[in-house]
Simulated scan of single mutants.
Amino acid sequence: MSFSPQSRVWIYQSNRKFTSAEETEILKKLESFTNQWKAHGNELLAKAEIRYGFFIILTVDETQANVTGCSIDSSVRLIKEIEQEYNIDLFNRFNIAYKVNDDVIVNSKEDFETLVNIKQVTPDTIVFNNMVQTLADLNTKWEVPFQNSWHSTVFAHLL
């Protein structure tokens, strides 16, 4: 199944890494949701995935049917259920994810700021831009060097 580069994406970042058992269970829930996800009765061409054990990514190709407020609400309800069931935080935008070698690390804004301050996070550190909204941007602008990200404007005073 191929998705248009303009497909909409939603990224939910966990505050901790899922165990492999949790990841399997969560993927099952997401798959059963995306298989029956509808907007005003129209089947949505949708998929869900988990990347790096931290990121739940929902993708909808709107060339088939447009996402509606109600259909977005239903996806948010599912994410909130997952959050409660697994005792994780998927909505805290102040948690910042970045890479050290190939490992993903999630820290609070304050801890991240400290790491920037002591040069543990450098301009070349890869950070995740969870604000991307299309599949094309997910593929090209999601994992970016700190210096090219919105993060660098927030923490510019430290660089």
Rank of each mutant, 00 (worst) to 15 (best):
P5Y: 05
V9D: 12
W10P: 13
Y12S: 03
Q13S: 11
N15Q: 08
K17A: 08
F18K: 02
S20I: 14
L27M: 12
L27I: 04
E31M: 05
S32D: 14
T34Y: 12
T34C: 11
T34P: 13
Q36Y: 06
Q36C: 06
A48L: 06
F54W: 10
D61W: 08
E62K: 03
Q64G: 05
A65P: 05
A65C: 02
V67R: 13
D73T: 03
V76C: 05
R77G: 11
K80I: 03
Y86A: 00
L90V: 01
N92K: 04
R93G: 09
R93K: 14
R93S: 12
N95W: 04
I96G: 02
A97I: 00
Y98L: 02
V100H: 06
D102C: 07
D102Q: 15
V104T: 15
V106T: 05
S108H: 00
F112Q: 01
E113K: 11
T114F: 04
V116K: 01
K119Y: 02
V121F: 00
V121R: 00
V127G: 09
M131A: 14
V132I: 14
A136M: 07
K141G: 12
W142Y: 15
E143D: 11
V144F: 13
P145R: 03
P145Y: 03
S149G: 05
H151R: 06
L158A: 01
L159T: 06
